[in-house]
Each structure stands twice: as C-alpha cells, then as structure tokens.
Nucleic acid binder design. Structure first.
Lengths: 138, 138
DNA sequence: CGAGTTTTGTTTGCTGTCAAACGAATTTTC
DNA sequence: GAAAATTCGTTTGACAGCAAACAAAACTCG
C-alpha cells in the first residue's frame, strides 16, 4: 500500500543497453585492438560509399561533427584514411580510404563479423534476429 | 559469385546498440538535464543500499574505479552526495546521499520511469519485455 | 610476526560524445 | 546583386569510459 513505485535500476532499458554496449566494446577491443568500433564504422562506410565530406561521413555513421573530427584525425594518423580539400567547395574536407585502409579492411571485415557473432553468442539465431528487429523498432 | 561477404554496418548488433543508446541518452538528457544516466544510477543505488565505499558503489552500477571517481566528484559538487573517510579503513571513502540528494530522487524517480517508457514507446508491452529479456540473455 | 597478496583509491592518457559558439563559404531568396 | 539562411568545419568545455601504473592500507598465511 505504500508508494515506493519499486524502481529497479537493473530493470531499466537504459541500464541494460549500457551493459550490452559495454559487453560489445569489450569483445571488440579484445579482437580488434588496433581500432575502435566507431573508427571501424567509418572505414566500412568509406569502403561502401567512396570519398565523402567529413560531415557527411559523420552523419552516415551517426556521429556529430565534433566527434567525427576526432575520429577522422585518429584514422588519418594511423594512415588508414586520407583527407584532401574539396576542389569545388572550399569549406569541405574530402575523406577517402588509403591503400592501407583498404588492406586493413580486407582482414578486419571477417573479424568484425566474428565479433558480432560472439557478441550474440548467447542467443539462438532466432533470438538474435528478434533482438535486432526490436532494436530497430526502438 | 564474388566474395564481398556483404557486411552491412547497419545490420550489426554493435551498431544498433549504439544507436539505441544514443536515443536513450537523448531522451534522458532532455527530460532530466540536471544529471546524466550514470549519475542517476549512482543516486538510486545509494538510495537502495545506503552508505557504500566508492569502489563498491562503482561496481554495483558497473563503472570502473576511474570512472566512478569522476562521477562521484560531480555529484558531490552538486551537493547530492557526501563523501567521508571510513573510520575503520583508512583507504576507503564512504559515499552517502545528502538530504538534497534524497529530495532530488523523490522527484527524479517518477521521471526516470517516464524516460524508460518513452525510450520504449515504439514497442508494445510484450515487445518491451522481450527486448529486456534478450538484452539480459546477451 | 612478517612477507606476499589483495583491495582501495588516484592519476594520466587516450577515446568517444554532445552542446554551444564561431568564422568562413555556399546557397537561397527577394 | 545583396541580404538572409544554411552548411561545413573547428574549438572549447563538460561528461563518460577504459587501461595502466602507483601508493597506501588491509589481509593472509606460513
């Protein structure tokens, strides 16, 4: 009869999402320590789309402009991407994969698939699909 | 017949988890701008458990020691928690809610429940339960 | 008791995340 | 063509997260 609405932190969706993310990050960084999930996302996007402006690239992987700048900087430092001023728009920076970047991806993509599998290893294929669908719906 | 294992970034569980997290964070910070989800987690944990040492507190909300230090510092600065040296163990710092912290929680907990609901608003109650169960299983 | 181990907390350094403010360039609109 | 709005990228500041190295305190166990 008391109030005390019984709010349990551990049952909250936000808390569970955070834990799931932590788990994924842990698996990722143990399997692909050279790079982070965000950096990897940027590389695959560049592979699929070719040269892109920095902001556009960021939007495609759901990072804001400030975040994108840092990620691009670190990938460039590693030699996996190259930056060049746009010839047509003097505000723009065009980002593209280097040969090293392409070579890296050839090895990393199978690894990434394995990481995804491993992250979901406690789920049956059907459960996995269901989870992905529910996350989408969110 | 080509290889090209068709790795789609958008289908990866890690990517989706990150998006879901971003969405939750956005909702949270618009509804409860004074505080972050982690800070809130710490407060509710203290409410449930009473006084705790800093590291122990961090473990209960799944933050490592270095992260915990920062979160505790910010909450103390806001006056929501108090820190005191343990009388029995000179290494320990004991963390407890202040009266302000308790008062804040009285208003914040219903808000947090609303945030959880809103985060899952695109899901039916059954889908929501299923998602939570799948995240657990992960 | 005392050496070795564990626990607690701190610091540093790197990464990612966003908001806000800004300057420069481009596009739109009148 | 010029003013207004938008877009592009940068910088700064705050927050969260981990790894690694460390010092101090406490504990274990021979």
């Amino acid at each position: 009869m008391t109030e005390d609405a019984s709010y349990r932190l551990e049952d909250q969706i936000g808390f569970k999402l955070r834990l799931a993310n932590q788990r994924h990050l842990e698996i990722f960084s143990s399997r692909m320590p050279e790079i982070t999930p965000r950096q990897f996302a940027v590389l695959t996007k560049l592979k699929d789309e070719g040269t892109l402006s920095q902001n556009h690239l960021g939007r495609l992987v759901a990072m804001d402009a400030a975040t994108t700048k840092g990620v691009v900087e670190r990938l460039a430092r590693k030699g996996l991407i190259a930056t060049a001023p746009s010839p047509t728009d003097r505000r723009r920076v065009e980002i593209s994969l280097t040969e090293e970047g392409r070579a890296f991806l050839r090895e990393a993509i199978p690894l990434a698939a394995e990481i995804s599998d491993r992250t979901a290893r406690n789920l049956s294929p059907r459960e996995r699909d269901r989870l992905l669908a529910l996350l989408d719906k969110l």
